[in-house]
Design a protein around this nucleic acid. Structure first.
Lengths: 140, 140
DNA sequence: GTTATTGCAAATTATTTGCACTTGG
DNA sequence: CCAAGTGCAAATAATTTGCAATAAC
C-alpha cells in the first residue's frame, strides 16, 4: 500500500480527517531524500501554494510519528529532523558530524549487538530509534 | 588525579579561574548517581547556600564538557542531562523510557558492532556519545 | 450538522547573550 | 591591577497550546 493510502486509512480508522494541509506535508516528506526539520517542511510547503502554519506542521508530524510513517532523527543539536519511512525495512541511522550526511542501516546489522545487551544487562535497546554520531569516510 | 584537581589544572592551563560557583557545580555533579539537567543542578546548588545563576550553570557545563569531565545524555525529550565522568572508563548509556533509569555500559561491549559498521559502511560511529532508549528488565 | 482541524497569537521551555559590576590570581 | 567571571535581565529558538472560525465527512 502506498504511504498516502496508509495515511488515509490510519486517519479514518481513528475518525480523523484527511486535509489538504496534511496531504501537502506528507508529500514534502515523501519527496525529501534527507531528513528535514519542521521549519524546512514549513518552507517547502509554502513553495507550492498558500502557506501552512508551522503549528499545523508540528501537529501533523505528531500524527505521522504515531502512525509510524516517519522516524525522528536527533543529531544532538536540538533540531529534530523527520524522515519518511513508509514501507522501508526497519533501520537506524548514522549521521556524520562534519558534513551532516545521514545513512540508513538495516536493523539486522545491529541484531547481535542488541541481543548481547539484552542478555547481559536485561535491557532491550530500541536501536531503530537511534542515530549514531560519527564521521563518514569522506570526512576523514 | 581527582576530578577536582583535574578541573583546576585544566582551568589554569587555559588561563581560566577557579571560582566558588564552579567548585559547587562540579561538586553537585560529583555527588549525583544519575544524570541531571541543568535545572536540577541549579536547584541542588541553591540548597547548599546562596544560589548560583542558571546561566552560570550552563557556562560551567560547557567548560566541563570541553575538559571531558562530564558526558551529555540525550533521552530525546529535549532535556539534556549531564553526568560526571571523571576517571571512569569510556562508556555509553542505556536509558529506560519507562522509569528513566540510566545504565552505563563499558564501550568494549560495543566494539564488535562499531568495527562492523566501520568496515562495511566506512562510517566510524562515536558510540560513547550515544544513549540507547529502550526498556529495562524491571519495566517489562 | 457535527466534530475535527486550522490559523493565529500568545505561552512555554530550554538555553544563550550583552553588559556593568565583581573578583581571582 | 585587570582580564575572567558572575548576576541579572533581555533575547533566542523550537515547540506547544487556547480558542474562535472553518471545513471534512
Amino acid at each position: 500500500m502506498s504511504c498516502e493510502n496508509r495515511f488515509t486509512s490510519e486517519l479514518h480508522r481513528r475518525g480523523l480527517r484527511l486535509t489538504p494541509q496534511r496531504e501537502r506535508i506528507l508529500s514534502v516528506l515523501h519527496g525529501m531524500r534527507s531528513p528535514v526539520t519542521a521549519e524546512e517542511i514549513h518552507r517547502r510547503v509554502a513553495e507550492s501554494g498558500p502557506g501552512v502554519e508551522l503549528s499545523t506542521v508540528y501537529r501533523t508530524l505528531d500524527l505521522l510519528q504515531t502512525f509510524g510513517l516517519i522516524s525522528v532523527i536527533d543529531r544532538g543539536d536540538r533540531h529534530y529532523r523527520y524522515k519518511h519511512v513508509g514501507t522501508e525495512r526497519p533501520h537506524f541511522h548514522l549521521a556524520c558530524r562534519i558534513c551532516g550526511k545521514v545513512i540508513g542501516i538495516d536493523l539486522a546489522e545491529a541484531a547481535d549487538f542488541a541481543s548481547r545487551i539484552e542478555s547481559s544487562k536485561g535491557f532491550r535497546p530500541d536501536i531503530a530509534q537511534v542515530t549514531f554520531p560519527g564521521t563518514c569516510r569522506g570526512c576523514r
